[in-house]
Design a binder for these strands. Structure first.
Lengths: 211, 211
DNA sequence: TAGACACACGAACAGATGTTCGTTATGGTG
DNA sequence: CACCATAACGAACATCTGTTCGTGTGTCTA
């Protein structure tokens, strides 16, 4: 609820990253889609950052008022090498955060639309056996739709004290309970203090490849 | 002013041509932009032709009502060409054969090449909890490359006495052993008599989708 | 010739989308 | 502390955009 008042730089970086991911897709996102992807709830907030980014020359826009007008400054038109792909942006492993900038892995040659009608779809490489009970093995790819809030009962990818995991999101009133997908672990009740708990997105699929 | 009443075919071809021209640009055109390009003054006329083209499979659209949603079929949008989807040809369930002719399910919008370099890739819907130990849950899709023989140690989709399952294929000399992926079941040693054991293909992937 | 059909038009509607405005909260600075 | 800049919010607002409806006008066919 309480908006964070820090530098705003990370927000802008997230916008750039999202636009990068979108540049592989058919059309640029709307202002509200950007907001949903980076966790801004008001289109006004997004618009403000877009203006700032435009002044800095990092993005460009078509005519005023036109829909889906914002693009990365460098990318003219659509890149489409070998169809649509899902970027692998990090991994889920015990004791590690979810996303890392220097994480490098080939994107999955799967259409993001196969897993969700719309939204910002990314993949995370699963490492470790902590989610075996949920049918998620080490080496699998967790397909995540990035979003700041998760529906009740859905599986959320969260960063909890700097460690990324998948938990069932259960909200009762103001209290959030994270139920594990493995037996032998108990549920965790947490407040929504920033820094401690951060929602990364919602699990929309799992992909395993052999060989 | 007087609308021309000819076949309408040239109009549709013009729309296709315009969409082709647009596909290099950043975002698809609006309905009105299409109309201006091909000489239709009413968005209704354009919309009508777009519907026709969609039914003919020449173009595809995103969700209803979304802006700039129309694209050429086969361009970066939803790839619906035969090579870009995986057909769901049957299911794996206790007591049932694998493939059935009258089985009807939408094909997976995933590139077969994502799972295997080449070959005949199909999907089977998994039903039942018999393969939970292998991280395969009810409702998952087993991605299978059809082949009559399976490499040693790989997971094979086989029909055994009319029932389809996934087993680890182990051949020692002339004898074939099928190891189950679930605990509590013992390995089965079988001869290669036709009718009793039939190899369907090799498991190359697993896909799970939520919602 | 009458009717069915395809094609186009213009108007209107509903929802999506970009944009602006006023307000609140936080952190830094004199 | 008072003051200011930044960042975000929610609520409008105006326009863009997809969609539908009713109507008219040609072509084809029985």
């Amino acid at each position: 609820m309480t908006p964070s008042r820090s530098s705003g730089e990370p927000t802008r970086d997230a916008i750039i990253a999202f636009l990068e991911r979108c540049s592989g897709r058919g059309s640029p996102p709307t202002v509200r889609e950007i907001g949903e992807a980076v966790g801004l709830r008001s289109p006004a907030s997004v618009h403000r950052q877009l203006r700032t980014l435009e002044e800095a020359g990092r993005i460009t826009g078509e005519e005023d008022g036109r829909s889906r007008r914002w693009r990365l400054a460098g990318s003219s038109g659509t890149r489409r090498r070998g169809g649509e792909t899902i970027p692998v942006v990090g991994r889920i492993a015990a004791g590690e955060p979810i996303e890392s900038v220097d994480f490098q892995e080939d994107p999955l040659r799967l259409s993001p639309r196969a897993f969700a009608g719309s939204g910002d779809i990314v993949a995370l490489r699963v490492e470790g056996e902590s989610m075996r009970e949920a049918g998620i093995l080490s080496g699998d790819f967790a397909i995540i739709r990035r979003q700041p809030e998760v529906e009740n009962g859905a599986v959320a990818a969260v960063t909890l004290d700097g460690e990324g995991t998948l938990k069932v999101w259960r909200r009762t009133g103001r209290r959030v309970t994270l139920e594990p997908r493995s037996r032998g672990f108990e549920a965790i009740a947490v407040g929504r203090r920033s820094g401690e708990l951060q929602v990364f997105g919602r699990l929309v699929g799992v992909v395993r490849m052999f060989e």
